Amino acid sequence: MKRAIFPGTFDPFTIGHYSVVERALTFMDEIIIGIGVNEKKHTWFPTEKRVRMIEKLYAGNPRIRVEAYNGLTVDFACMRDARFIIRGIRTVHDFEYEETIADINRKLAGIETILLFTEPELTAISSTIVRELLSYGKDVSSFLPADLDINI
Rank of each mutant, 00 (worst) to 15 (best):
D11L: 08
S135R: 14
D139K: 13
T14W: 06
L122G: 05
D29F: 04
G16Y: 07
D149E: 11
N105R: 07
R90C: 10
S135W: 00
P7C: 09
F95G: 02
G60A: 11
N70F: 12
D29Q: 11
D75V: 14
V21M: 13
D75S: 13
E30S: 09
L116Y: 07
R3F: 01
A77N: 06
Y69K: 00
F76R: 02
R131V: 06
S126W: 08
E67D: 09
Y136Q: 13
I89N: 04
E67G: 02
R131D: 04
P46C: 11
S19C: 08
A102I: 03
L72H: 09
V20S: 10
D81C: 04
S142M: 13
V130W: 07
L122N: 12
L133D: 07
E22T: 08
V21C: 09
P46Q: 14
E99N: 06
T91H: 08
G110I: 05
I54T: 09
F10W: 07
R80W: 02
V74Q: 07
K107L: 12
R65E: 13
V130E: 09
E121W: 03
L134M: 14
T100W: 00
R131K: 15
F6L: 07
F76E: 05
F27T: 11
E119C: 00
E112M: 01
N38L: 13
R23A: 12
G71K: 08
D147C: 05
V66P: 02
P120E: 10
G60N: 09
E132G: 07
I86M: 01
K138H: 11
I5F: 05
L115E: 04
A109F: 05
F117L: 15
T91D: 10
I86K: 00
G137S: 10
Y136E: 07
T118I: 05
V66C: 06
R65Y: 06
A109M: 06
G34L: 13
D147P: 00
E30Q: 14
L116I: 15
M53W: 14
L25K: 12
L72S: 06
H42M: 08
I104K: 03
F13E: 05
E121N: 09
L72T: 06
S126Q: 08
N105I: 02
V130M: 09
R63Y: 00
K56G: 12
I125F: 03
Y18T: 01
D147W: 00
I33C: 09
D94M: 08
G60E: 10
D147N: 14
E39C: 00
